[in-house]
Amino acid sequence: MAVAFNLCEGVVLHSFCDSSGSVFYNDTSGDILSVPLTVSPSEGGRFICHNTEGLGGKSVITPPEAVTNSIEQLVKRKWITLHNA
């Protein structure tokens, strides 16, 4: 699953290098949204893909519904705008 988006003003993100996910930070409110998605830079926005999260030595693949829910939450909070949405 790949979705391209733009970050809204005042929102920054960080993707963890162990591919466990990403965290979005709203500099205005001081809130974060921690999501089990790996976000990589790409032209015209960002690219979101499945990731694996190591937990207790096991790898857990993030289920598609968790990806969808995380994206919906980000859009609902107006932290990102999806391309072609």
Binding site: H14, F16, C17, D18, S20, G21, S22, V23, S34, P36, E53, G54, L55, G56, G57
Partner: peptide, 11 residues
Amino acid sequence: ITPLTQRQTFQ
């Protein structure tokens, strides 16, 4: 002992 991912550590 349970290892934490970087995202969990951050949280």
